[in-house]
């Protein structure tokens, strides 16, 4: 640029100072959960291959999923899944051109957060109950 002196114009800070808001935080969350789900998609293929290879490999995979570490991963997966699902539905609604008033943006945003937590809890409730029963 043409400013005097050897240095160029500095760039003002962006993410370092911009306030996190429901808008940007949920957007980033949708991305992060998407990346997490990609990793689980790989695991899903591993799981299918194990199943196709026979009872032995399959039970090895099942046992690692059943371990404490595996269960923590699955909890993260469940939450990511519902977050991405609900966030994705929110995006699809926007794509139809609806829900762009700030009030709707915030209402749907919090709805996504609450729904993700509830659905995760529900899923785990049911699966624990199934495991017991």
């Amino acid at each position: 640029m043409s400013s005097p002196g050897a240095r160029g114009r500095p760039l003002s800070p962006n993410i370092q100072i911009y306030r996190p808001q429901l808008t940007s935080v949920l957007s980033i969350a949708n991305r992060i959960t998407g990346v997490i789900l990609s990793a689980f998609a790989v695991l899903m293929v591993v799981w299918l291959i194990a199943a196709a290879s026979g009872p032995q490999p399959f039970s090895t995979v099942q046992r690692s999923i059943g371990s404490l570490f595996g269960q923590i991963l699955m909890l993260g997966f469940t939450f990511s899944f519902f977050m991405h699902l609900c966030g994705g539905i929110r995006h699809l609604i926007w794509d139809t051109g609806h829900g762009f008033e700030l009030r709707s943006i915030y209402a749907s945003g919090w709805a996504v957060v609450v729904a993700s937590i509830l659905l995760t809890a529900l899923t785990w409730g049911v699966s624990i109950w199934m495991g017991v029963g």
């Binding site: 399959f58 899923t123 199934m130 495991g131």
Partner: peptide
């Protein structure tokens, strides 16, 4: 997957 919780290879297949 939830319905399959705790089931073995045979059930899965």
């Amino acid at each position: 997957v939830i319905a399959l919780t705790g089931s073995d290879h045979a059930a899965f297949v």
